Computed example of a mutant assay.
Amino acid sequence: MTSEANQAAKTAVVIEDDPDVRHLLSEVLESAGFSTISAGNGIDGVSAVLTYQPLITTVDVNMPGIDGFEAVRRIRAHSDTYIIMLTALDEEADAVLGLTAGADEYLNKPFRPRELRARVEAMLRRPRGGAGPAATPSDAVGRSFPASSAAHGQAPGTVQSGAPESAEVASGGARLSPVAAVAVEASDAEEQWTTHRDLQLNPATRIVRIGDAEIELTRTEFDLLHALMESKRRVRSKTDLTLVLRGESYVTSYFVGDADKRAIEAHMANLRRKLGDNPAQPQYIETVRGVGYRLTSGA
């Protein structure tokens, strides 16, 4: 990997008009190993993201020029950087707007520096662009995702030029050619479909279908749906689903606040909309009032 690629992978852009908050954000991200570029308004921030192609971007909602929602829309049109939106507003509608625009996380001000760092580390454990295996924070910081074929969906069945001439397969230690090994992996992936009514989900290929129609979901929406389909009729609380998205399903000591729960509600609203699921008469996902979500009854 070139030094330029390494530098890009360790870069974060901070878009924030308040100099004190901007300084705090930069300190937190630099303590996590990033070099930071700061911008005091949305226009300069979008330009910085397009120039440096950072791994992480933080975006304030209320800024001079264009607001954070428009900045996120412009960034998302050209970059798959992880985006955290920050706002002093405490309205669910703002969370929905931010997540719909393309943000990955939504954090209310004032925020705890440790919470911001935990959000960053959790995002880096999730697959980027809705495909490929999840990366650990150290892996994600240490590589250039834009140059990675995994991040951009290398064509199925493509064999890299540096691949060995044969591949070991677990069944009896037999050796298969790369083409045969790919065929075995594809066959295994096809057998991993989870179904509920006419809804199908394949965790290996990260494809979701309703009948024969493929549904395009963000990585967060996919992970939420996957968690619910695995749990079937068992209720998943908003706290539980927050930890699932952070990759901390089995850790109970992490802070989960009201902003996290509103973010889950916003993601769930987007997921239901894409599935064509009416919360009042749900076909796939039902709300258990005061607790969380689960799949509807029926095959």
Rank of each mutant, 00 (worst) to 15 (best):
R175T: 11
S161I: 10
H152I: 04
A181L: 13
E168K: 13
G173M: 05
L176W: 07
S149C: 05
S166L: 15
V159M: 13
E190R: 08
G153M: 12
S144D: 11
S166K: 11
P178N: 04
P164V: 02
L201S: 00
Q154F: 15
S161H: 12
S161P: 05
Q200H: 14
P178L: 03
V208Y: 01
D188F: 07
T195K: 11
G162P: 01
D198K: 04
V159P: 02
S144K: 04
Q200A: 14
P156W: 13
G153Y: 09
G157W: 08
E190N: 13
T205H: 09
A183T: 08
E165L: 14
D198T: 07
T195E: 09
V208H: 00
P203H: 05
Q200K: 10
S187E: 13
Q160L: 13
G162E: 15
H152R: 10
T205F: 06
Q160T: 13
L176H: 08
S161E: 09
G173H: 09
H152P: 05
Q192T: 12
N202Q: 05
P156K: 14
A150G: 01
A204P: 01
T195H: 14
Q200S: 10
R175F: 14
A186H: 14
H152F: 14
T205R: 08
P164H: 13
E185A: 08
D198E: 09
G162H: 15
Q154M: 09
P156F: 09
A186Y: 04
L201G: 01
S166G: 13
Q154V: 09
V179S: 06
I210W: 04
A181C: 07
T158S: 15
Q192A: 13
G173S: 08
A163Q: 12
R197S: 04
A151T: 05
R209L: 02
